Computed example of a mutant assay.
Amino acid sequence: MGRFSKMHGLGNDFVVIDARDDAVAMTQARARAIADRHTGIGCDQLIVIGAADDADVSMQIFNADGSEVEACGNATRCVPLFVGRDVTIRTKAGLLDAKAVDGGVSVDMGAPRFDWDAIPLSLPMDTLAMSASWEDLPPPAAVNVGNPHVIFFVEDMDGVNFDRLGPLIEHDPLFPQRVNVNFAQVTGDNHIRLIVWERGAGLTRACGTGACATAVAAIRRRLMAGPVTVSLPGGDLVVDWAPGGTIRMTGPATHVFDGEADWTRF
């Protein structure tokens, strides 16, 4: 039997598996089965916490469709709560550190990348204002914060059909690794309302990396200066970044319950 915790960050929920002492063989089919809300445990993302040579722990991240991804900001905030102390975390996106602070958990998410082939895009173009768009959406920005994001700053969020445009853009050939799609509206001097269509998961109550990418894009476009409050359906995150530096994200993390499961049954 393997130990797990059910956790969430602003309603973006996770099954967090402890594989530090006993490795857990995770396949796409197994991750998808565990994430299923009807026949499995149920989650937006499955997180596997393991041992690491150059950090306190390692973290693998699987979306509900079973695909493995590089980064998840909300999940990263849950790791210190799961481990019981401040930690450094080895991920596919690099080495991150997460620590408890007033207001929840603060995570250094590393430095954003802006080169077209670092997003990645299939064609060279300026990622601050891309020479591509979809239907009546404005030209977006693109940022890689460990995983790929495209950000649309819209005048009226309520006029956007997220369910139609999200998957259309996620699977566009311009994004060879697919993409997380962020729909943002500036609502104040340092405040953004955000809806995220998450790659492999769909509409989500909160996306930490989406909040980071959107705040960075807003600062790059000189729409505002950090720190930026990003309001998602699940609640608020605070993101701070200055050009040339790393991204600091702060927000809540919640432990729901613990359990045990036989992973070979999934």
Rank of each mutant, 00 (worst) to 15 (best):
W134R: 14
A141H: 02
L174S: 10
R193V: 00
V154W: 02
F175P: 04
W134I: 11
E170C: 08
G159F: 08
N182M: 04
D163M: 13
N161V: 13
P167Q: 06
V107D: 03
F162R: 10
V154F: 06
A118Y: 07
F162Y: 12
P138W: 12
S131A: 14
M125R: 02
E135H: 11
R113W: 09
F152Q: 06
G110F: 00
I119L: 07
N180Y: 03
A111V: 08
V186M: 14
M109D: 01
N144F: 15
A141L: 00
N182D: 11
F175C: 04
N144E: 12
M157G: 14
H191Q: 14
V186Y: 04
D117E: 09
D117S: 09
S131W: 03
P176W: 10
R113E: 11
Q177V: 10
F153S: 00
M109N: 08
N190G: 09
M157V: 12
Q177S: 13
P120M: 04
N161E: 15
V154G: 07
F183A: 02
A129M: 09
V145N: 10
D172A: 05
I119F: 02
V154Y: 03
P176L: 11
V181P: 11
F114D: 08
D126I: 04
I119R: 08
A118H: 13
P138A: 15
E155D: 15
D126S: 14
E155W: 05
V160N: 05
P139K: 05
P148L: 10
E135T: 11
G166A: 13
V160I: 14
R178T: 10
D108E: 12
F153G: 07
L121Q: 09
F152V: 03
N190E: 14
P148E: 05
V107Q: 04
A129I: 09
T127H: 04
Q185L: 01
P173G: 06
G166L: 04
M130A: 11
L137T: 01
V150F: 03
V179F: 01
T127R: 06
I192C: 00
E135G: 06
P138R: 08
W116E: 13
S131R: 14
R164T: 15
S122H: 06
S106C: 06
L165M: 08
R113S: 13
A118Q: 15
P120K: 03
L137A: 01
P139D: 01
S131P: 12
L168C: 12
G166S: 03
L137N: 02
R178G: 01
V181L: 06
L128Y: 02
R193I: 07
F114A: 13
N147H: 08
P148R: 10
V186D: 07
D136M: 08
S106I: 14
F175S: 06
D115T: 07
L137F: 07
R164G: 11
V179H: 00
S131E: 15
G166M: 07
D115I: 06
F175T: 02
H149V: 04
D163S: 15
P112H: 10
P120H: 09
H149L: 03
V179T: 03
F114Y: 15
T187I: 12
L174T: 07
P173N: 02
G103M: 08
F183D: 01
G110C: 04
D189W: 03
R113M: 14
I169M: 05
N180D: 05
M130F: 08
F153W: 00
F114T: 13
D158M: 13
P148H: 00
